[in-house]
Amino acid sequence: MGVGVDSGRRPFTGGRLGRAIGAMSETRSWPFLLIVPSLLVILLVVLYPTLHGISLSFREMRLTRPDLGTGFVGLRHYVDLWHDDIFWRSLANTFKWVTLAVSLELAMGMISALALNREGPLMRICTVLVLLPWFLPNVVAANMWALMLDARLGVVNELLVRMGLIDSYVAWFATPTSGLLAAVFIEAWHGYPFFTLLILAGLKAIPKDLYQAASVDGAGSYQAFRNITLPMLRMIVVTAVILRVISLANSPELLLILTGGGPGDSTQVISLYAFKTAYESFDFGYAGALSVVTLLLLMVFCVIYLRVSRVLEK
């Protein structure tokens, strides 16, 4: 017998539906059809809430004052915002919080990725260990550290006292500066593996012979880092910073658990202020306005940041 055994059946083509899909995949509308499902999901869970939030910001909705109704109030919330000291303080705190935390995370991520990129027998295990904090949910990480830094029974205080670095237990979250710094430290500890992971992937993609060429050209390790590593990582760093800034500016849970915005309003950031306005004061209209402002600020940040990094590239 030759090649090709004829079993008397036609080859499987997937029936009528299969043939219809096959025919459709040849048409120009196919890419758009493929996008439709995710587009529907985005419309449902992103666009609708966003539009609803924006519309809320122009209306009254206080659950504690049902008598005020839910009518249209124009720009009143925005005018109130303008005169709200807590808003301005939150804005400044957000800036401090995001800048400090993201810078620290980027630095730690870069250093750990450079270290993990070296060849060695324990590097695989170390990579997993470094990534561990990232596996913890925000809430778990925050509660864990709140306990470890506790002013009366925290293990950190105990260790520092035993090592003779401090005389007695410190209430880390009791002063504005130490409270913010402690929160930044915890956030950085929790978030830096995100940078490690992305930067490590970027480092692995840099061809080795570039470093060999640089070494023949006479470049030392710092010059190789500046002239090869950094430029090759630029896109990854830009992307990671944008993602991280957005996620930090939007998530209040870490500060909510650690400081609740205090002492005073020293760690009150906009997302936390909006959260408390909505779910403690039940003023959804005002919280909506706070969220819209956050959205606009983040959009402005992204545009400026992309422009600046593109200018730097040239």
């Binding site: 012979d209 060429a213 002239n227 090759m232």
Partner: peptide, 12 residues
């Protein structure tokens, strides 16, 4: 001086 198989030109 060395010429590499991949040329190893600095991309940036």
């Amino acid at each position: 001086a060395m010429v590499f198989q991949s040329y190893a030109l600095y991309p940036s």
